[in-house]
Design a binder for these strands. Structure first.
Lengths: 210, 210
DNA sequence: ACCTGAACACCGTTCAAGT
DNA sequence: ACCTGAACACCGTTCAAGT
């Protein structure tokens, strides 16, 4: 209901911040066993509370999932920011760092990633938090494009549209990799890095100012 | 080509080819109401059989989902083949047709698309059919790249890797569109077409022979 | 050979009752 | 204010029994 981006510390009752505990447990179950195994009762079990307790913090299972997704987008945004913000390299290298960050997030959180991009429209309607979180990621891509344009590196055009092209390629690549759809090319870590480099090159060429 | 796997023809009993009927019903439920609503009992209901009947044709719910996914990949492959096969236009136009076909498939079957790229690795292990079906799509992309290379249009390099770049961009774009993540740029059909054109351009530039 | 109906374990959700 | 335990409807899955 409220925006929970800050570390607030509600007074511990039986279990401290149960909401946060449930979310952490949920992320754990999700990554360990997949969505099919993500049961509210199991999450409650892990948190050491009764199966009815989660309903004090989430309207239903959908709202709980939305909370996990929200966290997911904020974490992804953080990783992206770290990757592109702390580097004073050439733009090509920054783009590669961005790509690496995105792909590695997907590899580290494949199930979360799948849920983050599964029926978002519905979840955004019922959860303002999810909407804000997706915007955080979206804005990062747009900023990157606009920076590139202001330096004369990126072709002119609607920055939102060009940002979507970058996002699309990084996302698609990440999905193909975690779904093992790139075959032998990414079966090893070195292959993944090579794939990232190739994507970065194609993007850089394709987006560059002519 | 509409070659849809090996056609077995079990003789009609009470309901004709129940297996196929169940799959059609399943695809219907999935697209109408999403994965959460995809229940074997509901599918059986729609097919007019008891809730136990599906177990004569599928080991469990997972195997049923795998069957839907398999159909999904073959249909996607068909659409792609149609798009690139029947056109004698310039390669740029063919690429755009390919992109359109992919995106439109996603728009027409968003839930199926999400399931097709959700936990594929696990499903491929238990379902050879799914593996073959994904290969059918994968090969199409590779062929397209190799054709481009042989004509000197596409840069040299591992064709599988370059094929993955194309697939990645088209897939990512499709996901962003169906998840409403490209914002206003694709809220109307015209916006989607423009987005497709931009992606195609970037791809063509990025992949071209230098 | 193919399907049914009862049965079982388990989940999401609700609610009166506890601390 | 926050959590528990019983209760309910419904799902996935199994299996003996029907045609």
């Amino acid at each position: 209901m409220k925006s929970e981006r800050k570390e607030k510390r509600p007074k511990a009752y039986h279990h401290g911040d149960l909401r946060r505990t449930l979310i952490e447990a949920g992320l754990e179950v999700l990554e360990q066993s997949g969505v099919a195994a993500l049961e509210l009762r199991e999450v409650a079990r892990r948190a050491g509370v009764s199966h009815a307790a989660p309903y004090r913090h989430f309207a239903n299972k959908g709202a709980f999932l939305a909370a996990l997704i929200e966290v997911g987008f904020y974490r992804l945004a953080e990783q992206i920011e770290e990757a592109v913000g702390s580097v004073f390299n050439k733009p090509e290298v920054r783009l590669q760092k961005l790509a690496s960050a995105y792909v590695h997030f997907a590899q580290a959180n494949p199930w979360l990633m799948r849920e983050m991009f599964s029926g978002l429209t519905i979840k955004k309607e019922s959860s303002l938090g999810v909407h804000d979180a997706t915007q955080a990621v979206s804005k990062l891509f747009i900023t990157i494009v606009e920076e590139g344009q202001s330096k004369g590196l990126v072709r002119s055009g609607n920055s939102g549209e060009l940002a979507s092209v970058i996002w699309a390629l990084l996302h698609g690549m990440s999905i193909l990799i975690i779904e093992n759809q790139t075959q032998s090319y990414t079966s090893k870590a070195a292959g993944v890095e090579r794939m990232i480099r190739t994507c970065t090159q194609v993007l850089y060429e394709g987006l560059s100012h002519r």
